[in-house]
């Protein structure tokens, strides 16, 4: 089951960003070439959040003791023991991750279903992710967003995920051809939608 959890543009190249899905903590990070990864947000060493870390030379480095993990999630260097050939058992816990329609999608099952069908010929650009202080089920019921976690509305793609039991996040994307005025208008509508959902 793929779930949208962030805008692609909110994970800049060479940076790490936190996300949560149903309470599970996830780190999203990109190397300098833009390759995206999603892992459990825990260093296998001492449990430090990897999203506090930094990206150097294609590796995510834990801020606590500097353990470095490459794109395969394997730990490649332990600075306290630079001579150590790090065993392959020391690795981060990866999620499946893909980018589609301006959003980042993750799945935890090895046999993740195919992504929802989206028009390939409409390149999308993320607009905004915004938190809603309402449970995912309530937001889904009020917006008509189905189990797939996304819906088209007035030319905008709206994704939804539950960060924790009480908080959801909406993710909006518009076609790249959308005008600045359309983007501003949709931004205002998204804020109004959030406020209406919380007031309900």
């Amino acid at each position: 089951m793929w779930t949208p959890i962030a805008l692609s543009e909110d994970v800049a190249a060479g940076t790490a960003a936190p996300a949560r899905l149903g309470g599970a903590e996830i780190v999203l990070w990109r190397d300098g070439d833009g390759l995206l990864q999603a892992w459990e947000d825990r260093c296998p060493h001492r449990g430090m959040r990897l999203s506090f870390g930094f990206v150097r030379e294609g590796r995510l480095t834990c801020l606590y003791h500097g353990w470095q993990f490459d794109a395969s999630a394997r730990c490649r260097l332990i600075p306290a023991h630079p001579e150590l050939k790090v065993p392959g058992t020391i690795r981060a816990n990866p999620w499946h991750v893909r980018e589609r329609a301006g959003l980042v999608w993750v799945a935890d099952a090895a046999d993740a279903d195919a992504l929802p069908t989206l028009p390939d010929d409409t390149p999308m650009r993320g607009l905004r992710s915004l938190a809603v202080r309402r449970p995912r089920a309530a937001v889904a019921a009020q917006t008509g967003i189905g189990a797939g976690g996304w819906i088209w509305r007035d030319g905008a793609l709206i994704g939804l995920h539950g960060a924790d039991d009480a908080t959801s996040m909406l993710h909006l994307a518009l076609p790249q051809s959308a005008t600045a005025e359309a983007r501003r208008r949709t931004m205002g509508e998204a804020t109004a939608l959030r406020d209406a959902l919380e007031a309900a």
């Binding site: 962030a6 805008l7 909110d10 800049a12 940076t15 960003a17 936190p18 996300a19 949560r20 999203s51 506090f52 801020l63 905004r128 992710s129 938190a131 960060a163 908080t167 996040m169």
Partner: peptide
Amino acid sequence: PHDLVPATRRFIRALRAWPGFLTMPGIA
């Protein structure tokens, strides 16, 4: 938590990258 405020995260990154930035405990 910062996962709920992506625009604020971007702002933090922008100021952190500004020349002369310094830290305090809790801000790397």
